[in-house]
Design a protein around this nucleic acid. Structure first.
Ligand SMILES: [Zn+2]
Ligand SMILES: [Zn+2]
Ligand SMILES: [Zn+2]
Ligand SMILES: [Zn+2]
Lengths: 159, 159
DNA sequence: CTAAACTATGTTATATGATAACATAACATC
DNA sequence: GATGTTATGTTATCATATAACATAGTTTAG
């Protein structure tokens, strides 16, 4: 994840966003696309107020207020284009929209990179546990904090 | 979960808390015990400011300030006696301290009751996925929102 | 084409959740 | 009982998120 052509990630995300909005019959306005782009600048989750500042810097808007950002985030979440990372109060691009359930989020505590990893066996185990307790799942969040391999290697070479 | 002798839950929680504090060489002060009791009043997660108000009402303190509550919550979390429910910004009693990893939290979207369910197969699936991606897990959170059985039954009998 | 309805954004104020920094009190050890 | 340590009190502030209402843009029907 650390070394890759990230422009491809951004392009794919924008392409998917346009498809999804078309399917759902909603508009990917300039504001929504701008914020989605900002979120996809890298693979780290970004806070709402940081996005607010980034939007002010990277557009010709004078002042951006919180509701502008939060409404847009709500829209993007609603249509599965981003995730809220609850353990960080931050937002990250979704790499696989059009899914029924959220994937596992692996969050590196050193570099902050967050990778969304689909995993059927985790989902199956959750579904089984839920059905055993006669619990009907509506949605779920699995956030895993730890160290990614590049950061472990870097730390090892430091010492 | 809906129908049970909840006093037993409270008594066990307090007993465990005393054991844990003894083991860890820390003190379960009056304040810490009061807040732990308030959290264990039921199986719903409670917010920090609600706990603050409850503490004012249920003790002879005049004013309770946020740091008083947050420091105590931090202590209780650090020693594994409560969990923070990130999706609600609220705190709930831990029913199984002395574990290496967090269990799955099943949160009912109707009644708010939250049940902590240990599940080895979920944990195994997470560990496998992590090792496949060479990711070292430090901690994790799995929060599952949905409907508990009693609430489903109640809804069915309403219609 | 334009009025009406709907959707999106702007604006101001405020609610809610959490922490920093420093002062005081309680407890333990010697 | 002086000293170091842990716990709590106090004030101010930061960080995150939403309510309420105003304006602008877009679509649809007549
Ligand atoms: Zn990338
Ligand atoms: Zn990393
Ligand atoms: Zn109980
Ligand atoms: Zn319920």
């Amino acid at each position: 994840m650390h070394e890759h052509n990230h422009q491809i990630c951004i392009d794919q995300a924008l392409k998917r966003a346009k498809q999804v909005c078309l399917q759902h019959g909603v508009r990917l306005t300039e504001l929504r696309e701008q914020i989605l782009r900002l979120i996809w600048q890298n693979h780290k989750p970004l806070g709402a107020y940081l996005l607010m500042n980034l939007l002010e810097e990277n557009s010709d808007r004078e002042h951006v207020a919180p509701p502008t950002v939060y409404r847009t985030l709500d829209f993007l979440i609603e249509h599965g284009l981003i995730h809220k990372v609850h353990s960080l109060n931050a937002y990250v691009g979704c790499s696989s929209p059009n899914q029924d359930r959220c994937n596992a989020l692996f969050i590196c505590s050193v570099c902050g990179e967050t990778e969304e990893i689909p995993n059927n066996s985790i989902q199956q185990a959750i579904n089984l546990s839920a059905s055993q307790h006669k619990f009907t799942v509506e949605n779920q969040m699995l956030e895993i904090m730890g160290k990614c391999q590049p950061c472990k290697q870097k730390k090892a070479s430091d010492s």
